[in-house]
């Protein structure tokens, strides 16, 4: 080292630590890199790492799971299965029953939630005194976790202790206590009521936000032209809310298809299979039967159906068109 420094001047030796620090200073390196064309890729790197680890890897892993036999209680048969799981899904009567239940559950719930949300949003949008407080109260159910909402309603609809049965008997609508979730003819309807209570504020919130952005001049002009309340709703409000409605419906449908928690708490898919939806079927297959491969195939099918629904809905509703 001493020999190496023989040729250097004293001034160089004095400034050596500084030049070394400057060479390896991370801020200096970043400054130099920011001048190159790699800078934009470096800035995108954290987002890329996040997307790959949180979205891409689990999705690919799910797809990989669906072409394998993965049964925790029969590990000897585990291995590559090809498309066998999908052929089994196609031939599985429980899958078709669950699909039918899912269609009913999602369609009826979304329609009820939309109508309730639209009514609430129209009333709240009138900005009458005191409506802000009622607006907060109306939104409360949406802030509750599904587990809490499910337990509240399971208690309220309980055949022995439930307040609903008690009130219905008092007003003469029911002769005796009814087990709403134990009767196949009423279990789905009762579950839809609970989900509608829990989910309608979502529509109310989004539609109200959309209504606030509609210029008031349109309504004034329509009033001068003699348009009534219903005509204004049909010709101004709903067309102006088209994009918001499309986004809300797609988000809600995805949420309903993917969440088995409320039905798991209220009915567990029963009685029999009366309320077994696809997400619940996939959950039960994975965590009760420990058949993760088949559950993966069911999940991939659900994923494909949701993608198709979103694509078809956007195309049919025409929200991606100009104007």
């Amino acid at each position: 080292m001493a020999e190496k420094n023989v040729g250097r001047s004293a001034a160089e030796l004095v400034t050596l630590p500084y030049s070394l620090w400057r060479r390896w200073n991370p801020f200096w390196i970043i400054g130099e890199l920011s001048e190159t064309r790699f800078w934009m890729y470096l800035l995108l790197l954290p987002s890329l790492v996040l997307i790959v680890s949180v979205i891409l890897y689990p999705t690919i892993n799910g797809f990989a799971l669906s072409v394998q036999n993965v049964r925790l209680n029969r590990p000897a048969n585990n291995g590559f299965a090809g498309l066998n799981q999908y052929i089994r899904v196609w031939n599985d009567p429980l899958f078709w029953l669950s699909l039918q239940n899912t269609a009913m559950w999602v369609t009826i719930t979304t329609i009820i939630e939309f109508l309730l949300g639209l009514t609430a949003a129209l009333a709240l949008n009138r900005n009458l005194p005191g409506t802000r407080l009622i607006g907060v109260i109306v939104l409360i159910p949406f802030f509750l976790p599904n587990v809490v909402a499910g337990n509240i309603w399971a208690m309220m609809l309980d055949p022995r202790l439930g307040v609903i049965n008690d009130l219905l008997i008092r007003i003469g609508f029911l002769g005796t206590q009814k087990a709403w979730f134990a009767d196949p003819s009423t279990a789905m309807a009762a579950a839809i009521l609970v989900e509608s209570w829990h989910g309608f504020p979502f529509f109310a919130l989004l539609l109200l936000a959309g209504m606030k952005s509609i210029p008031n001049d349109l309504y004034k002009a329509a009033t001068i032209d003699g348009a009534g309340w219903l005509s204004q709703l049909r010709l101004i409000t709903l067309p102006m809310l088209r994009t918001v409605i499309a986004a809300a419906v797609i988000l809600r449908v995805i949420g309903l298809v993917n969440s088995p928690d409320l039905l798991l708490i209220l009915t567990g898919g029963g009685p029999g299979r009366a309320t077994q939806v696809l997400s619940l079927y996939a959950f039960i297959t994975a965590y009760k039967d420990f058949n993760f491969g088949y559950s993966g195939a069911l999940s991939v099918v659900m994923f494909a159906m949701l993608m198709f629904f979103a694509w078809a809905y956007i195309r049919i509703s025409g929200v991606n068109r100009e104007n």
Partner: peptide, 27 residues
């Protein structure tokens, strides 16, 4: 009449929204 109707609708929604929570609190 429109204002009265709006308040009736909002009160109905208010009861529908907070009723189950109040009942749970009382229970």
């Amino acid at each position: 009449a429109k204002n009265v109707l709006t308040y009736l609708v909002l009160i109905a929604f208010g009861i529908f929204g907070i009723g189950p929570l109040l009942w749970t609190l009382l229970t």
